[in-house]
């Protein structure tokens, strides 16, 4: 079997696939970075887990 020189068509397809691949990778990285920023800046959250948690109760104001 002989190897033929690469056709121009292959080059264009490769450039398209490479470009799309890099674009998608960059998009994933950007969404991840955005998520990290948004989560870090959000208020601390704690969900109800069916157990009594005194720490979640609002603090009562002490009267003098």
């Amino acid at each position: 079997m002989t190897f033929r020189p690469e056709h121009d068509l292959h080059k264009r397809r490769f450039s398209r696939n490479l470009g799309l691949g890099l674009t998608l990778a960059a998009f994933v990285a950007l969404v991840f970075a955005l998520t990290v920023v948004k989560v870090q800046r959000g208020e601390p959250m704690q969900g109800f887990d069916h157990t009594y948690s005194p720490a979640m109760l609002p603090k009562e104001e002490k009267t003098p």
């Binding site: 068509l9 080059k11 264009r12 397809r13 450039s15 398209r16 490479l18 470009g19 799309l20």
Partner: peptide, 13 residues
Amino acid sequence: TATPHEPGFGDYV
């Protein structure tokens, strides 16, 4: 399967 002017990534850009 091949179109006569198959676009490269730069064409989409």
